[in-house]
Design a protein around this nucleic acid. Structure first.
Length: 512
DNA sequence: CTCTTGGGGC
């Protein structure tokens, strides 16, 4: 088997696919796992058998990267597409599905590499024999911004083969331009369409919302001949993300009352953050009631987790506790635990947060960076300094997680609150340069102000100003520190400096 | 074998 393979040098493979991963799979791997996939010797058996085997393999396991990789490999090594095969339609189906599976997977560019292979190596799939499916999948694969060159050429190719008025192809191109953020091009494709499906409208709205054009999205939404629950969910999500929770809720009610459409789980997941933003426990409870009535809470862990988060944000920690008790550990995933921990953290309940963390580990789950951030923030707000430091060490040493700026910020905040300013300064100065920022130093400056520490404060403000100038609040904080230790003249000098540099602090208003 | 919405902190 190996000797047969030597006809195809790895280097050759590498240039065909552009990826080492495919080249490193040996023929033995394939035939070992799939005895049906014998690698033929190119000279002795001119016709590789059964492309429909490969096809059904792909259709059976559409999201298994190994299978996809091996099918890809087999197509290349066997030269399947080079043979004047009697069943060209099956081969086209196979080609389309390889592209489709890649475009849905983690690295859609592989679809383009595969496609280039079929175009550059004298297979019979040059573009005149491609169908509308091929183009729909290819534009889906080019949806990320690294593929603009390919995608633009693809659009030209669509015109060349005459699919420019095919609805599915156009919807694919619309989706491609939308995800690149080229909304003008997207709109051009959209308005040139003679016939649009519901999905076409939804794709366009998705693009508009994703790039911040919520008002435009709403006007497109209002022009729709009919709307699905997806359309409604999209615009509701647009307003939720835009911090207009009341508008989101109004749309939610309209959807049910005017259009008579029942929300799905996704709609609820979209509306929950809006309710949390309002912070009204009554609305929270009625949303919960609705989720129970539809059976979403018992069937969909995402809904339960979002409810834990929602109750915590509405300040109803008793409900968080109830969820923790009533939800069997078996059903809890990492997000469930993390939501509960952060819920305790934001309500200042450090001990409960730590206890929940322990229970999570007993249940056999390992924390990730978000879990650690929640527990660190719980320690910071609950004054559990030693515990917090231990967690930080555990995170780096035991769990091998790389802290980001928010973790460092939490530790600095924690030490600062406790008045351990020297240690806080030491931590801040040891934060790697790539992640360090002014916010972190400003946190420390705030702590210096609270504890009236001029020495550290002076060093810290230098750091802040090195990184970010013109933030008026920094000067005010420093001047407050100086006033606190009765160095009024220095404070005055600093105030003068503020005026000179025209740094200013916007006055704050309270609505309470 | 087409395309759309998707759970965790600040």
């Amino acid at each position: 088997m190996v000797s047969k393979m030597s006809l195809l040098k790895p280097k050759h493979l590498f240039s065909l696919t552009g990826f080492v991963t495919v080249a490193t799979i040996s023929s033995t791997t394939i035939s070992h796992r799939f005895p049906c996939l014998e690698i033929p010797a190119p000279s002795s058996s001119p016709k590789p058998k059964h492309p429909q085997h490969l096809l059904s393999l792909l259709l059976k396991h559409p999201s298994q990267p190994q299978i996809l990789q091996q099918v890809h490999c087999y197509i290349i090594t066997s030269g399947l597409f080079h043979y004047p095969f009697h069943d060209t339609s099956t081969c086209l189906l196979l080609l389309n599905n390889v592209i489709r599976c890649y475009s849905r997977g983690p690295s859609p560019q592989l679809a383009l590499h595969f496609f280039r292979y079929t175009q550059h190596s004298h297979t019979f799939f040059t573009y005149p024999s491609l169908d509308t499916f091929s183009f729909a999948f290819l534009s889906h694969a080019s949806a990320n911004p690294n593929c603009t060159r390919f995608g633009t050429q693809l659009h030209a190719l669509v015109f060349k083969v005459g699919f420019q008025f095919h609805m599915y192809v156009q919807t694919g191109l619309l989706q491609m331009y939308s995800s690149w953020g080229l909304l003008v091009e997207a709109a051009q494709v959209f308005y040139q369409m003679l016939c649009k499906s519901l999905v076409t409208w939804n794709v366009f709205i998705t693009g508009l919302i994703r790039w911040g054009e919520v008002e435009l999205a709403l006007s497109v939404f209002n022009q729709m001949p009919s709307r699905s629950v997806v359309s409604w969910t999209l615009v509701i999500d647009g307003y939720t993300r835009r911090n207009q929770p009341m508008k989101a809720l109004t749309l939610f009610r309209e959807m049910i009352q005017v259009d008579g459409i029942e929300p799905t789980q996704v709609t609820l997941l979209t509306i929950f953050p809006a309710i949390a933003n309002i912070g009204c426990i009554k609305i929270c409870q009625s949303a919960h009631g609705y989720a129970e009535k539809r059976g979403f809470n018992s069937s969909d862990i995402r809904i339960t987790n979002a409810l834990i988060d929602l109750y915590a944000k509405c300040g109803c920690i008793a409900s968080v506790n109830r969820f923790l008790q009533e939800l069997p550990d078996q059903r809890k995933n990492l997000v469930s635990w993390t939501s509960a921990i952060s819920g305790f953290a934001m309500n200042g309940m450090g001990r409960e947060a730590l206890e929940t963390f322990e229970n999570m580990e007993k249940a056999g789950l390992s924390p990730n960076r978000v879990t650690f951030l929640s527990v660190l923030s719980a320690c910071s707000h609950g004054g559990l300094v030693q515990e917090g430091l231990d967690f930080f060490v555990k995170m780096v040493k035991d769990c091998k997680l790389v802290p980001d700026i928010k973790h460092y910020g939490c530790v600095i905040d924690m030490l600062g609150r406790a008045g351990r300013l020297e240690e806080a300064e030491k931590v801040a100065s040891q934060v790697p340069h790539e992640v360090a920022n002014a916010v972190m130093w400003r946190t420390l400056l705030g702590a210096c102000s609270v504890h009236n520490n001029v020495d550290i404060g002076q060093r810290v403000i230098r750091k802040v100003l090195e990184m970010e100038r013109g933030h008026g609040g920094d000067y005010v904080l420093m001047s407050n520190i100086l006033v606190g230790v009765e160095r009024f003249k220095d404070a005055q000098r600093l105030r003068d400096m503020i005026d000179k540099r025209i740094a200013f602090k916007l006055p704050g208003y309270s609505i309470v």
